[in-house]
Structures are given as structure tokens and as C-alpha cells.
Design a protein around this nucleic acid. Sequence first.
DNA 1: AACCCGGAAGCTAA
DNA 2: CTTAGCTTCCGGGT
Length: 470
Amino acid sequence: MKLVPGPLPPIPTSTAMDRLPLPLPFSPDLLWRYPLGLSSMGQLQTPSSPLLDYKSQLPSSLTSDPRIWSREDVLTFLRWAEREFDLQPIDMDIFQMNGKAMCLLTRQDLSERAPGSGDVLHNVLQILVREANNFQRMLPSSPVTPTSRHPYPLSPHSHPPTPNWNILQHDSFHSSHAATLAAHLMSNSVTLSPAPSLDSQSGSPQHLDQATFNHSIFSTNGSNGSNPSDSDEDNFDKNGHHGSPPNTPSAYSLVPPMPHLPPRSPKEIQSPGAFKSVGREFFPNDTPEPNTNGRLLWDFLQQLLNDPNQRYTGYIAWKNRDTGVFKIVDPAGLAKLWGIQKNHLSMNYDKMSRALRYYYRVNILRKVQGERHCYQFLRNPTELKNIKNISLLRQQMSPTNTKPPVLPQVTIKPEPAEIEAPEVQNCRPMEYEDKPTDLSMEGPTDLSSSSSRHVNIVCSPDPPLGGPLH
DNA sequence: AACCCGGAAGCTAA
DNA sequence: CTTAGCTTCCGGGT
């Protein structure tokens, strides 16, 4: 369902994203892919947003559209990026080109010219171009840029419209936001190698600064977001119930330049619960750990769940971190977020839950019986990251080898969702075995029949619903 | 009606 | 081209 460039839908006065705190657990590129939605994010829209301050850090001589930069502008930009993002020294000699030319460089081109910084530069440029397009689009008389997609209404849960928010502010926000994103990107790109979703692995990195957090969540790592949205979107119509996102400047202010060294992640991060850092003792380069960066659903969920600032508890929250039990507080909203993350804007809970159900068969997830929107992770993030070797694991798969992970029998009584449900507190932390994990649709791996369906999460006296549900 | 389930087919990025 | 990981659609059950 690709969106074809076409008439732009009305700019939403309020969108789901309105209530989204930053940073979103989205790939950075999403931010430029969906600038409008993001720009209209609630608190972010406040005119006093620190993001605006960030904009001021951009070289004032640079116009917002990199495509019209002169050679000198390009150099100015590069110097700025180099300094701002703490990039490795860029050889200016091989950037003797104007902005238009630079914008035509592919990620790879940029990487070749600026080893180690290509991703950052590319992403920043993409953002700026997109921003410029959006800006033009937003101007009453501006033509719709061919490449522009309609600024769909992103949000499912919108904050009440922000009175002060007007288009110009939008744009201001955008520009600055883009810059901030750039910083996000940079943090990702510069430290790309490090394992993704550190958060996921280590639980809640309470001490991660924003940049680090973003790093773990936003890594674009090749996702250039150049693909147009491929689905229609429905307007989010609910008002956000989400807790107030961080309003503190620190949350939105310019991400400090990332050191070339990866953040001390997991190790330094204190994490409560079973998802403690399980051993990423080394840094990125050592670990061929797959980098999912929230692009996989389970990782996305983990990242939301483990947000150090608990900003997504309005969407999804642990009921018991130790047992991996979580509740989707706002199914529609979460689905929208996921849809945005994956650039499938017509995502809904039905579809997302289908994806979740595919996790049953590979023992990544199971449903908590008797509790709506409640699921349980059967594997910890580290393990999940490692089961990238699906092909290998699949080979091990055999009907006799599909024993489900030993898990606590957890039953969530059908009572009002309660974070950290006491009834599951006693369940011992997950113990995982390396089980084959294969999400492929081919062939019935049928792990589900032995776990998801036979092993019900029963902790309370509830009758073990034992058998397969179907 | 909302949720939940899983089959089937298709899509996209790697 | 193959594969992973969904996405989309759907019929059916609770």
C-alpha cells in the first residue's frame, strides 16, 4: 500500500504523535519521513522547545535547503557537522561541490568520502531536504514537491491542539527538530556498531543520557527511509492519554556529540529485573550481535517497555518485568507507533497482534490468558538478539526439539491491569533455553502448540487452560 | 464489538 | 534469487 504522491491531506491539527515524547523509539529516518506528525508532537511543539535553540546552532549562513547550498556552504556544513557531531575529520577537498551535488550523493558515496561519517551526513542531508520539502509544502502557495508524501495525520492519540502552534512554528520546530534528529542519527551512526537496543538488553538504562538512549533506539543503520510511505493512514482520533512526555530541556535539547567510542552501554546501565544486561561485556565491534534497532517488533516493544524515563507506559508497560509480562495499555496507539516505525501507516492492533502471534510459534511471546492485551516475553532481549541465527536454529528444529522454554506459570487474573502485578511477582525470572526461533511462515514449526497454547500463563488458581485454544 | 487466533498470500529489505 | 520478518486479509472463535 504505497502512498502515491498525491494531494496532501489536510494537516492534522493534532495527531497521535502529539502525545509522543521524544525520543521516539523510531528510526531517525522516520522523523524526516514523517516530519509533520512528529513536528506536531505535543510538548515538542512548544515554542520554547529547546529544539529551537538547537537550530540556532546551525550555521546561520546556511539556508534550510541544502540543495541550494554553494560550495562554501557545503564546506560550512561539513565543518559544522564535523564539529557538532564529533565526526572524524572530513577531507574537505573531496567535497568540492555544491549542495545539490552533495545531496545527490548516496549514503555509500558519502561514506566513501567521509569514512565513518557518511551515514551521519547522509541522514542529516536527507532530513534537511525533507524538511525543506515539507516547508515548501506547508507554505500556502508552495507547490507540492514531487517527492513529498502527504503529511499524514499520524496520530492516534493527540494532545489537544497546542494553541500556539501554527505552521510557522511547525516549521521552526521542524528545522530544529531535524537538526536534533541529525544528532540522533549521528549518535547512531557514529556508534553504529554497538549493539542496538541496549535498552532492551539491559532493561532500563537509568543513566543513559538522551543521546545514548537515542543511540540505542534510533539507529538507522542503513535505513534511509527513502521509501515512501506505503500505506494510507487513518487519523488518530483519540486524545492522548499518555503521560506527559518529558518536558525538560534535557530531553529535547541538542544531543551532545557522541564520542567516537560507543557509549558504555549495557555494563554501565543499571537495570532492574530479569532483562538485566546479560553480558554484552564488549563493545560493538566485538559482538556480531544483530542490530535490530527496534525494527523488529519484539525489539521495538522492548525498547518502549524499557524506556528509562517510562515515557511509553501509556502505550505499553511491564506488568512484571521479571517474568516478561507486559500489557499493551493502548493497543491502537501502540499499533500506530509500530506502524510509524515500520512505515506502515495503516497499522492497527489487529495487524500488529498478528505479528505478535507469529512470535508464539517461536516462543518469543505468549499470550497471557485471561488478560486482554497482555503478553509475556519468553526470551530475554539478549537471547532474542542472538537468535538471529535463525537459519541455524531452524536446522536444529525438530518436532522433538521444540520444547518450550521453561517459564513460570503465570496467570494474570482478569483484573484491572496493574503494573507490576503482584500476582506474578513470585514467578521466577525467565529462564531461557536456546530454542530454535523461526518466524518463517514455512512449515509448521509448531512451537506454539507446545508453549503458547499448551503452556498457559497461570499463576493463580485459575484453571490451567491447558490445552490448545483452538 | 472488541479481542483473539492462525492460515494464506504478499511485500520489503537484506 | 532467497529468506526473515513481518503486513494484510480473512474466517472463525470467545
